[in-house]
């Protein structure tokens, strides 16, 4: 059975498709920059979903043109919400991108697994703990070796 092509079908498919593609990209991509891009896509889909929630058939945009009794308008509340969400999104994106720049400077890689590996290695080297940190026994649950005061690297410089 093929459903008739209606505006709501197209719009909801677009919104949900963008969210699904974006989340799939976040989970699957091995390159950190693509992960940020996928997050942007997912955010676009979520914004579209919110605006769709306030749409009304045969309504006008929520702007008064005269003093007369206004015609049916679309719901302004989701629109105001999305307005702020878009601006917050760009702030988050700038933060993510600047963290990526620092990761590139420090670990010289943008591959997700490799960066995590080097990060783990560096944490282990700084703490003087064994390298094989498994997920079942995280570092916090085992006794840490005490470090002499001059070895504690507060500034985070590379060794």
């Amino acid at each position: 059975m093929i459903p008739a092509v209606t505006p709501e079908l197209i719009l909801y498919t677009t919104a949900i498709g963008l969210i699904a593609i974006g989340l799939a990209g976040v989970v699957l991509s091995s390159h950190l920059f693509r992960m940020v891009l996928a997050l942007v896509i997912a955010e676009a889909g979520a914004n579209l979903m919110l605006v769709l929630a306030g749409y009304r058939w045969d309504a006008v945009a929520p702007i008064l043109t005269s003093r007369a009794e206004p015609a049916a308008m679309v719901d302004p509340v989701p629109q105001a919400l999305v307005l702020t969400a878009i601006v917050i999104g760009v702030g988050i994106q700038a933060l993510a991108v600047s963290i990526l720049i620092r990761i590139r400077q420090r670990f010289a890689t943008l591959d997700r697994k490799e960066a995590a590996e080097r990060m783990d290695a560096e944490i282990a080297a700084t703490l003087g703990a064994p390298r094989d940190i498994s997920q079942e026994a995280p570092l916090g649950e085992r006794p840490l070796p005490t470090l002499p005061a001059d070895q504690i690297n507060m500034r985070g410089d590379s060794p």
Binding site: A44, V51, G54, I63, M73, V74, I86, V90
Partner: peptide
């Protein structure tokens, strides 16, 4: 967004996104 009668949001998305 412009087709969905949300000109404010469309403008923001065009400028920001």
């Amino acid at each position: 967004f412009a087709l969905l009668r949300a000109p404010d949001v469309a403008m923001t998305e065009a400028a920001v996104g």
